[in-house]
């Protein structure tokens, strides 16, 4: 297991997971989200290749109402 921070919360997850696999394990609809790792945006077409590493800080965002 590795430790990551997702949206400000420390969590453990399996080693060697790709972003796509992590999102699946979190049950997140991948249609309307964006992912940033260590302040770098991760384009959707890389989610199946890029692996999440120990200590990574992830932001997973979606769209909400706003002005």
């Amino acid at each position: 297991m590795i430790d990551v921070t997702i949206n400000g919360k420390k969590q453990s997850c399996g080693e060697g997971l790709t972003i796509a696999e992590l999102l699946d394990s979190l049950g997140m609809n991948s249609r309307a989200i964006a992912v940033e790792i260590n302040q770098q945006i991760q384009p959707r077409d890389t989610h199946c290749q890029v692996e999440v590493n120990d200590g990574d800080i992830l932001e997973i965002v979606t769209l909400v109402g706003g002005g």
Partner: peptide, 10 residues
């Protein structure tokens, strides 16, 4: 229409 970007609820 404007929209905002916010953390997805876990």
């Amino acid at each position: 229409v404007t929209i905002a970007v916010r953390r997805e609820k876990l």
